[in-house]
């Protein structure tokens, strides 16, 4: 069973008006459990739109989007996925623990279970000692880790991430990539990840989808098989070969 099944999905914003935008044209995509998919492409190629279609934050103009073999809308109502954004989107008025508990509160978990799960998630992202802090006391990278812990708190089978490391400096970013891969391996979650960065896409994914703009389509799919990632992976010639491959594909869609 596919985690994501998209057939002939299109998205037109402001249809019939002067500012009509054809954001996505005829997207077909199937994602299997445990995959790590990245969406990469120039600005305005519709990668965030595609992610929001999967999340059912917007609905397709035509075609169908299914998550866990049900309509995306139903999957959202069933809380089948967790989501993280470029801005951590933490609530300043809640402590770190309370931020992670938020989705659990909405799902009606009892207090003690929430506490326990939040503590587990903080351990997973290695922020246990900041449990009682408020987000404003944390660095950008730490906030992003809390956001990931929050997205994973209710063990969704699918994690949707929209440039979550986009605002981080290079060192923090690489560290966060390793953290994310570790969590991905530990939890077995399927991930769809939007990024601008070619090395990031290659380092993280099992499959890179290169998108072309106006209207957004999936121009090419590049499978990545680099085995277990480590610091050495970043210096591996096979890694660079993939980076080049993605770069060429991107050049074609932009040319």
């Amino acid at each position: 069973m596919n985690v994501i099944d998209i057939q002939g999905a299109t998205k037109v914003f402001n249809p019939g008006r002067s500012n009509q935008v054809e954001a996505l044209a005829e997207i077909d995509l199937a994602v299997e459990p445990g995959e790590f998919i990245t969406l990469i492409g120039p600005s305005g190629c519709g990668k965030s739109t595609l992610l929001r279609l999967i999340a059912s934050l917007i609905s397709p103009s035509t075609g169908s989007v299914e998550v866990n073999a049900k309509p995306a809308e139903q999957a959202r109502l069933d809380r089948d996925y967790g989501m993280a954004f470029q801005t951590a989107g933490l609530f300043d008025w809640r402590t770190v623990t309370k931020n992670i508990e938020l989705p659990l509160e909405l799902m009606g978990w009892p207090r003690l279970n929430r506490r326990r799960r939040a503590a587990e998630m903080l351990e997973l992202v290695k922020l246990s000692e900041f449990a009682k802090h408020h987000p404003s006391e944390l660095s950008g990278g730490m906030q992003q880790r809390v956001a990931i812990a929050r997205a994973l708190a209710f063990s969704p089978s699918l994690l949707l991430m929209d440039e979550p490391f986009g605002a981080l400096d290079e060192m923090t970013r690489e560290h966060m990539q390793d953290e994310l891969l570790r969590i991905w391996k530990e939890t077995g979650t399927t991930v769809v990840f939007v990024t601008h960065s070619i090395p990031e896409a290659v380092y993280l994914s099992t499959r890179v989808l290169v998108m072309s703009p106006r209207p957004g389509t999936i121009a090419s799919t590049i499978g990545v098989d680099l085995g277990d990632r480590s610091a050495a992976t970043r210096d591996d010639p096979a890694f660079f070969k993939k980076v080049t491959e993605v770069r060429i594909a991107l050049r074609e869609v932009e040319g």
Binding site: R52, L57, R76, D78, R79, F91, L106, M107
Partner: peptide, 25 residues
């Protein structure tokens, strides 16, 4: 913050819940 609203929508939170958890604070 737009992403805070989207986050709440991704949790299928009701409109009044979004008002209470996000807008009022």
């Amino acid at each position: 913050d737009r992403s805070q609203i989207e986050l709440m929508e991704s949790y299928a939170a009701s409109r009044s819940r979004i008002t209470r958890e996000v807008r009022i604070p």
